[in-house]
């Protein structure tokens, strides 16, 4: 651990400055370590991996590859789990289904029960994804919710909402934006943000500076 939390126990050894939840997490970690069920090193490594290595870039590369390589795109849509496994992306025991935006169809993902999310491709979910209002409302009034994200979906475009489950995770494959013709895979990946793969944003080509 490199983070330090200062909690003055004081000269008398009373009253730390830990919050209840911090103390509870310390308690669990020390008990599980003593029982030989986990090691602090394993927890350190996992936290580091999730904070530094696993993020939306992995998913963005998958999207960019699907835009460039029609054969990969077909395999990705047919069997997402197998297609990403071929790229060396492990999804643990989770299945991946990739849902494709098309003219007249926009996709968005949610987990109405908790927070299931394709974290092996785009990292851990943002706070709003886990919030009760998003979980409840995006199913009932997706157009309004997306509007609040600044994404106006025309009335002529249908919106399909995909409810993730414990073992099946969805990822949105957005449409490749106009103006990105001839771009490399890397350049394309750079415009695919986390929210594009949730379906609450669309990839944008930066306006040329004239």
């Amino acid at each position: 651990m490199t983070e330090h939390h200062h909690h003055g126990a004081g000269e008398h050894g009373h009253h730390s400055e830990l919050s209840e939840i911090e103390a509870r997490v310390l308690a669990l970690e020390s008990l599980l370590t003593e029982k030989g069920l986990i090691t602090s090193q394993a927890v350190d490594d996992l936290v580091y991996r999730y904070e530094h290595d696993i993020g939306p870039l992995t998913g963005a590369r998958v999207v960019a590859k699907a835009w460039i390589d029609p054969d990969f795109r077909r395999r990705l849509l047919e069997d997402g789990t197998a297609a990403i496994a071929q790229l060396g992306i492990q999804s643990s025991d989770l299945k991946l289904a990739v849902v494709q935006d098309q003219p007249g169809l926009h996709n968005v993902i949610v987990c109405t029960l908790c927070s299931c999310y394709p974290w092996f491709l785009i990292g851990l979910p943002p706070t709003w994804y886990k919030s009760a209002p998003y979980r409840a409302r995006v199913v009932i009034e997706p157009r309004e919710v997306l509007g609040e994200f600044g994404l106006e979906i025309p009335e002529t475009t249908a919106i399909r909402v995909w409810d993730s489950s414990a073992d099946l995770r969805y990822l949105v494959l957005p449409e490749r934006p106009a103006g990105s013709e001839g771009w490399s895979e890397e350049e394309l990946a750079a415009i695919v943000t986390r929210d594009c793969m949730i379906g609450t944003a669309l990839p944008k080509v930066p306006e040329a500076v004239s």
């Binding site: 651990m1 909690h7 509870r24």
Partner: peptide, 17 residues
């Protein structure tokens, strides 16, 4: 868990995050 949590809260056990 409860007992151990209180040991941290009361400063009987000390550890830093």
């Amino acid at each position: 868990t409860q007992r151990r949590t209180h040991e941290y809260l009361d400063g009987i056990r000390e550890e830093v995050f």
